[in-house]
Amino acid sequence: MGFVPVCVQCGTRSNPCRCKVLGPTVGFVAFVVAGVVAWPVGAAVYMFRHHKGRRIMAHPATVVYPRITNAIPI
């Protein structure tokens, strides 16, 4: 039996029912996939360039998740 993440965001004005399920759920899955790639790369870069490594590790949370969540209005 597998685990399926379901994220719900209520209080949004992007659709009439003011709740989003699909956007945040797909955004979370994309966040995890991007994090699996970005965090080890960012940790390796952090050893030599601290600021750049932090930006790479923060990329899934600051860019990937918000873009996908906001792109899907449902």
Rank of each mutant, 00 (worst) to 15 (best):
Q9T: 07
G27K: 04
G53I: 08
K20G: 00
T12L: 00
F31H: 06
V63Y: 03
V8L: 05
V41Y: 07
H59K: 10
G27F: 03
G23T: 07
G27R: 03
A71T: 09
R67W: 08
V45W: 02
P5C: 01
P24M: 02
V32W: 08
C10V: 08
V36G: 15
Y65K: 08
A38T: 06
T12D: 05
A38V: 05
Y65D: 00
Q9D: 06
V6I: 10
M1A: 12
P66A: 03
L22F: 05
A58T: 10
F31T: 10
A30L: 08
M47V: 12
L22S: 06
V36P: 03
R49C: 13
K20F: 02
I74G: 13
P16D: 07
P60C: 10
V36K: 11
V37W: 06
G2T: 14
V29L: 12
V36E: 02
A71M: 12
A34N: 06
V41H: 03
L22Q: 15
F48Q: 13
A38R: 06
V64R: 00
V32D: 01
N15E: 04
R55H: 13
C19I: 09
P5W: 02
G23W: 00
V41Q: 04
V6C: 02
G35M: 04
F28T: 14
V4N: 09
G35V: 10
V41W: 08
V21Y: 00
G53E: 03
A71C: 10
P60S: 05
F3M: 12
G11T: 02
R54H: 15
V6G: 00
P5S: 00
A30M: 10
F28C: 07
V26S: 01
R54P: 04
R67K: 13
R49H: 15
I74F: 11
F28Q: 09
N70S: 12
V36S: 05
Y46Q: 14
V4Q: 03
A71Y: 09
G35E: 02
R67G: 11
P40D: 09
C7V: 14
T69L: 09
R54A: 15
G42V: 10
I56Y: 00
H51Q: 15
P16M: 06
K52H: 15
V64Q: 06
I74L: 13
G11I: 03
K20A: 09
G27H: 00
C7D: 05
V64G: 01
G42F: 05
H50Y: 13
H59G: 13
R54M: 15
F28S: 06
C10Q: 03
Q9W: 01
T69W: 01
V21M: 03
T12A: 08
P40G: 11
A71D: 04
R18I: 02
A58F: 06
V36L: 14
G23M: 01
